[in-house]
Computed example of a mutant assay.
Amino acid sequence: MSIPVIILHHPQLGENIGSTARVMLNFGLTELRLVAPRDGWPNAAAEPLSAGAFEAGVSVEVFDTAEAAIADLGTVLAATARPRGMEKLVVDAAGGVERIMQRGHKAGILFGAESHGLPSDVVGLADAIMTYPVNPDFASLNLAQAVGVFSAGWGAAQGAIGRWEGEKTGVEAPAPREDLIRMFEHLEEELERAGYFYPPDKTPLMKTNIRNGFIRGDWTMQEVRTFRGAIKALALGRGQARVKRDD
Rank of each mutant, 00 (worst) to 15 (best):
D179A: 13
A152G: 06
G229W: 01
A156G: 11
I161Q: 15
N135E: 13
G124R: 05
Y132I: 13
Q145Y: 07
D121E: 14
D121M: 06
S140L: 13
P119D: 08
A175M: 06
R193Y: 00
E192N: 14
E190V: 04
A144T: 07
G108N: 10
S151R: 05
K168T: 04
A173G: 08
A233G: 10
L187D: 00
F111A: 08
E114K: 10
I210M: 15
E223I: 01
A173P: 08
G229I: 05
E188F: 15
L125M: 15
V134D: 08
I181W: 04
F150W: 09
H116W: 12
P133A: 07
F138C: 07
I161N: 11
E185D: 15
N209I: 11
A175F: 01
A194P: 01
A160T: 10
G217W: 03
M183E: 01
G195D: 04
A152N: 14
T220N: 03
T226D: 01
A175K: 04
P133C: 07
D121K: 11
E114T: 12
A126R: 00
E188R: 05
E167K: 15
S140T: 15
P176C: 01
G195M: 07
G213T: 14
T169D: 09
N212A: 15
G170D: 02
G166D: 09
F111I: 07
N209R: 12
A156E: 14
E223F: 01
P119C: 06
D127K: 08
Q158F: 07
G148W: 01
A128L: 12
E165R: 06
F214Q: 04
G108E: 06
D179Q: 13
T226A: 14
A194M: 14
G148M: 15
A157M: 05
E167R: 15
Y132A: 12
G213E: 06
T208F: 09
I215S: 12
F138H: 13
I161W: 03
F214P: 03
L125F: 04
R177D: 13
G124T: 00
G162Y: 11
Y198N: 13
M183C: 06
A230S: 03
A230V: 06
V134I: 15
E188H: 14
S120M: 00
P204D: 00
V134R: 14
V149A: 08
R182A: 13
D121I: 01
R225P: 00
M206T: 11
A173M: 07
A139W: 00
A194G: 10
